[in-house]
Amino acid sequence: MGLKTIDRAVRDEAKDIVREIGAEQEKVIPLLQEIQKRHSYLPEDLVEAVAQEIDVPVSDIYGVATFYSQFRFTPMGKHLIKVCKGTACHVQGADLLASALQEELGLDGEGTTDDMNFTLETVACLGCCSLAPVVMIDGKVYGKLTSAKVKKLIKGYSDGKN
């Protein structure tokens, strides 16, 4: 069994990323963060190319990547929705928001819609507790939500109004 063939362009990108971030062991997390910043997830080929570039076993890299909840292994939808599951949001009805979102998006739990328009994730806490319950969409936080409000919000994003 030889090494998997990886496209030249992917190898070049890996070199570029390593040049920018560094090749030391302590740079593994920043390297993964940079890959995800560029692609919104960790493409397998690129992760392997970076691993070879810094001479660390791919298994070690995946060991780190799967440990941290920030990293995703499938492509992200056009819009990223993060439902806050913090304590304040929980007691103010975050579960209700989550089920309203799932219903609106046709998802069963977290994941990405078939049309690749939305990815739904939960986050432990966004730290905007006084506005609970909150949802973050594409980096923007919306507070004091209700199921009806959040559904309207999503419609706005689907229609390209938000």
């Binding site: 062991q25 993964l32 941290y68 909840s69």
Partner: peptide
């Protein structure tokens, strides 16, 4: 140094492992 989403990294020895680029 940016964390990557692991609650256990608030514990000091796990935090140091994470700074070193390892599992926390």
């Amino acid at each position: 140094k940016e964390g990557a989403g692991a609650f256990v990294c608030g514990e000091e020895t796990a935090l140091m492992a994470s700074i070193e680029g390892k599992r926390g």
